[in-house]
Design a protein around this nucleic acid. Structure first.
Lengths: 136, 136
DNA sequence: TTAAGATAGTTGCAGATGCGACTAATGTAG
DNA sequence: CTACATTAGTCGCATCTGCAACTATCTTAA
């Protein structure tokens, strides 16, 4: 991915690590690893390892969930938030750069088309899971 | 990728192998591994391994190039062509399925937008290479 | 309450793939 | 012609990441 150079080379983040950072930063609220796994469509083992690394780097911290001691609530540390805020403008800039070959109208269309496809795929996904459960 | 299930599960092709098959099948003419590497944006070592596997499976064959004995001319065997012809309709069907959430007009727009972005990225790529050469 | 099933997260393992070094062949400048 | 740079392809190595098994915990049904 063209964007990944931006956070890899400059901040030493690999793709799953960026996904964790981005999800927590975007939500600006604690959530479980499973939640990140779901909404980034990344295997939970991959997220687990990314979280470990980010905790060692003190970008992410986790607290036990008293209501369910299987899961942890993940959130960005102060440094994590700073890093996130620092990265966002860089990535937006990069995105604008990549999409600069399109008009504003075209960019809007592209986002709309992606939205439709994503939604459609999610429905398929959900449908398959439903079918799978029905299967016995 | 959603498509890859189609050729992986059913024909035992991984992604680089499919890229080799697709490039040779689409061109319908012999070409070098380097060429495939370039136009699929895949590292030459990856293409090299894919070609090896496909040769063992007698899907691809290669002949020496008398004019440049470093490179080989790659082409599909009879079985390779058959496989390619068998796969194409399946993949088109899958593609139609994925894009079925869009109208014909929207599909055209999407292709057009992708085309623009790809062309723009290629220009950036070329420009960077040119800059790199200029750099000394 | 207890047993069976589901869920969150971790970890060992294996496959995929890019990087860089290497060989052999070709191109080029002096 | 010679030496150096470039290019095609191969291979060892490291890394990335998904799969599946495992533990601990929670949920549900009898």
């Amino acid at each position: 991915m063209a964007l990944s150079g931006e956070y890899q080379e400059r901040y030493g983040l690999d793709i799953p690590e960026w996904r964790v950072l981005a999800t927590l930063g975007f939500r600006n609220d604690a959530c479980s690893a499973q939640y990140i796994s779901d909404c980034t469509r990344t295997h939970k083992s991959t997220i687990s390892r990314a979280v470990m690394t980010l905790m060692q780097r003190q970008i992410v911290e986790r607290v036990e969930n008293a209501h369910d001691r299987r899961e942890f609530r993940l959130r960005l540390t102060k440094e994590g938030k700073t890093l996130y805020q620092e990265l966002i403008p860089r990535l937006l800039h990069k995105e604008r750069e990549i999409l600069s070959c399109l008009t504003a109208q075209e960019r809007k269309e592209l986002a709309c088309l992606f939205g439709k496809i994503e939604k459609s795929l999610d429905l398929v996904q959900t449908r398959q899971e439903a079918d799978a459960k029905e299967a016995y």
